[in-house]
Design a protein around this nucleic acid. Structure first.
Lengths: 338, 338
DNA sequence: ATGAAAGCGCTAACAC
DNA sequence: GTGTTAGCGCTTTCAT
């Protein structure tokens, strides 16, 4: 008569699976983890036993024994931006079915907060971390380095060795927008931006560089650190117009601002794009209905999530990763209005 | 000379903290977990030792030993709805600082998918689960019951015993909207809804019940199961108007639909609220700028998240919870247009 | 290719 | 109030 240990969970354990399959515990462990050196016959025996008992591995025990959890941490600067929601969904879709837990950290565009999240999340020994961009504190970098956690960077690219990145060139996107506006004959161009993170800055740099290369004045810009919002877009547009009534083309660092500006322009009876052409960024799904004719850059956020997750899977599997940089590009969606 | 066990993580352990503090391991454990029966003097000794070593508890070991993780699972029907994002943020804000991991599950308005998520997430032995509403499969209910996981239900209320819920009355909200439209002299009222989850249905019921009580025809409704979106709002409005040109007031089950309808009304040159009054639901933050005069119900989603998380904390602490139901109410935000 | 033994770091149980 | 002991369920190491 076996004594029921009161501390047990009651769930079937690997030992029971092994016993039923007539193998040792470690063989059962290897079989269920697809360790290739196990006899296929034993593998199927173990599989059967596992199924028969309704065995579910205990992640805590696995983490404790292996010093590596099945959790992947994803750090994003905001949840209020639909962009990151779509990215997160795509990551979930790849990682969850493969048994990984996805832990979301929102660092609210704060490097300090990101550092804190990294510090805290390292306690759970995540098997990998997905990061947004490259702009972080030295301490953050050291923490990641010291803990040898595989990292994949999203939304921006780098050619630096030993760094995995999935995204597109923010600078190029800015440049493409500049050329688009120039091609439409606009010459008094401005960059309007809020929420000045590294990517917003890079977009602006690409925009201005392209203008300068075309011999066009690239000094017109209105950038504020405040969080981006529809309301702010209207305000900034209004402010820009007062200071520079001659402006005939505006690149807004994201669609929120562009929406607000379009509403404000309507209110003021300003013809868009007749008098001023607008270009947004990210091409939010709702934009098509709210401002159906706003030209914008369509960013590959779902694909960024998908590819970043798959890249992480490859790293976790110890695969040889040839391309450390995955450039997914972007698309300038030109609509009637600009 | 102590042999360095190669399997160790290298991080300081509880045993080392205990040694430095001159107490037994279990006393150190209790001290750090604020178990009340420990001598305050020892507690501070342990605290000091812990700090001196830079000790960080190993969650996997804790979970394995206690058969209960530090993870709280939150299940929401969608991430595309800003409503749930705000709720999730609020939950994070309460739980993360207290050392809990928040695992998000998106069940895409599918009971089957929710059941699958529950099944999967139970494997990690979460210490609690936050659920959206009450509409789930029998199997889901049994799983939760059998695993004795503390559950808190969000967004809806129930008077059922032994069920913890935080939210507001969806029916009452619908009724308030009905009375609002009636008070403005509207009599040909319709309910337009998409994404027919339990809450959307309850809102409609409250709306129609209030109309019936006022002796007004409550049969006008256009409800479709498709996912809600701005574009769909325009379509549904258009369809409703063709079938029932006499309609003079519409309750849209959420702001997305209302936005689309307003844009469509503008396009058709229909006076809102002169000819038709619109009421939305959820009062999304962007609404104020996009459709500044849309009357809507302001739902307490951040507070729902906050209170639900705190209620969970109370349950986890084993506290006596008197009020199993927390009604946070809602607010009818009447703006100029309707 | 398989297995035996030895932990991983912590807490529940039961003494004292 | 504090400590001793004995696991929690898994994977690592090392042997065969």
């Amino acid at each position: 008569m076996r004594k029921e240990a009161s501390r047990a969970t009651g769930r079937p354990t690997l030992a029971e699976v092994a016993r039923l399959a007539g193998v040792s515990q470690i063989t059962a462990s290897r079989a269920l983890r697809d360790v290739p050196t196990v006899d296929p016959v034993l593998v199927s025996k173990v599989r059967e036993a596992s199924k028969a008992l309704g065995y579910v591995p205990n992640p805590a025990a696995r983490t404790l024994a292996s010093a590596r959890s099945q959790s992947v941490v994803v750090l994003v600067p905001a949840l209020s931006n639909h962009l990151f929601i779509e990215t997160l969904e795509a990551i979930h879709n790849v990682l969850r079915p493969r048994g990984y837990d996805v832990l979301i950290g929102n660092f609210h565009y704060s490097r300090k907060e990101e550092e804190e999240l990294i510090r805290n999340y390292l306690a759970i020994q995540p098997c990998g971390i997905l990061l947004t961009g490259f702009d972080r504190t030295e301490a953050s970098r050291r923490l990641l380095e010291a803990n040898k956690v595989p990292c994949v960077h999203m939304m921006e690219l780098t050619k630096a060795e030993d760094i995995f990145s999935v995204g597109f060139s923010q600078e190029d996107a800015g440049a493409v927008i500049a050329r688009h506006l120039l091609a439409r004959g606009k010459r008094r161009l401005a960059y309007v931006a809020a929420q000045l993170d590294a990517r917003v800055i890079r977009r602006g740099e690409g925009f201005k560089r392209a203008l300068a290369e075309a011999g066009v004045d690239a000094s017109l810009e209105l950038v504020v650190p405040d969080p981006s919002s529809v309301g702010l877009g209207g305000e900034l547009f209004d402010r820009l117009l007062r200071q520079h009534p001659e402006v005939d083309g505006i690149f807004f660092c994201n669609d929120d601002l562009a929406h607000g500006a379009i509403f404000e322009a309507q209110r003021q009876g300003i013809s868009v794009p007749g008098r001023i052409a607008f270009v947004g960024f990210n091409d939010l799904p709702m934009s098509a209905h709210i401002v159906p004719r706003l030209t914008s850059i369509r960013t590959p956020r779902e694909d960024v999530g998908k590819h970043a997750a798959h890249l992480m899977l490859a790293l976790l599997a110890g695969a040889e990763v040839r391309d450390r940089t995955i450039d997914l590009g972007f698309e300038l969606v030109v609509r009637e209005s600009s």
